[in-house]
């Protein structure tokens, strides 16, 4: 390794370490500040809680054997919604690619649905699907589905025209074009829709849990609000932050594996 390369690597490592230290510092600073302000009543400890109370609250949840149940319910619902959304959006996108007129007709409605805050449909969904987990999943699927359809269909339609011409020169049928060219060349687009889709699913699940649920992190937050236990509310929010970050990172990792 040349000296330039060595010093380049060294600089790179130092920069990474500096960034990491800043992140830890900001996090600690924020937590300590929060704790101190709350302890000295500078911010209302009843509303804003404090890190130590949050930790206590989470330990209590753990002792009551509830912590992992709530976390698991949210993750489980999110994953189910993610998979269902993925399968449906893939199939719908193929149909929209094969039948251009259908796509052009539905385009207007897709755009409308895409811009509609799907949470607005929540009450309707509950009336139709019942006040249960089914409603939560339906809602999450609705939220991630439309975006995925738009992204994947767009990817399909962006297939290189020259390659389509090549397929035609071999006398390929529409289905062969989809199978040998359109789907495999949109692989990257499909995979990169995963990250968006998992975030959307989580949003859907939490909004669903706000409306109907007996468990889950969304339930914890709403329940905490109803009984004025703001320690619980803030614990729920913090747990959600952690879960969503982990889910995002896991999906990102899977993407990397699949794109190798």
């Amino acid at each position: 390794m040349s000296n330039e390369q060595k010093s380049f690597i060294k600089k790179y490592k130092i920069k990474k370490a500096v960034i990491f230290m800043w992140q830890v510092f900001i996090l600690l600073f924020f937590l300590i500040l929060w704790e101190v302000l709350s302890k000295h009543n500078i911010i209302n400890p009843f509303i804003f809680s404090s890190p130590s109370k949050v930790v206590k609250c989470i330990i209590n949840l753990y002792k009551d054997n509830n912590l992992f149940i709530h976390i698991w319910v949210t993750i489980y619902e999110t994953l189910i919604a993610f998979v269902i959304g993925l399968v449906i959006s893939f199939l719908v996108s193929i149909i929209l690619y094969l039948y251009n007129t259908v796509y052009k007709v539905l385009d207007l409605f897709l755009t409308c649905l895409n811009s509609l805050p799907k949470v607005a449909l929540g009450p309707m969904i509950i009336i139709i699907a019942g006040a249960n987990t089914k409603s939560i999943i339906v809602m999450a699927v609705l939220i991630n589905l439309i975006v995925s359809i738009v992204v994947i269909t767009d990817g399909f339609y962006n297939t290189d025209k020259i390659k389509i011409k090549l397929m035609n020169s071999f006398g390929a049928s529409k289905y062969q074009i989809v199978r040998y060219l359109v789907i495999p060349s949109s692989y990257k687009t499909i995979i990169s829709s995963f990250k968006l889709s998992i975030s959307m699913s989580l949003i859907g699940v939490v909004s669903g849990e706000f409306l109907v649920s007996k468990a889950g992190l969304g339930y914890l937050i709403i329940y905490g609000t109803q009984v004025f236990n703001l320690d619980l509310v803030i614990s729920g929010i913090l747990l959600l932050v952690i879960i969503s970050y982990i889910l995002y990172r896991v999906v990102e990792y899977i993407e990397k594996l699949l794109l190798k």
């Binding site: 020259i162 390659k163 011409k165 090549l166 020169s169 040998y180 060349s185």
Partner: peptide, 15 residues
Amino acid sequence: VIGYMLQEDALFEHY
């Protein structure tokens, strides 16, 4: 039987 050759980028990167 017709053979048609296009520009370079008509090779499929997924194969």
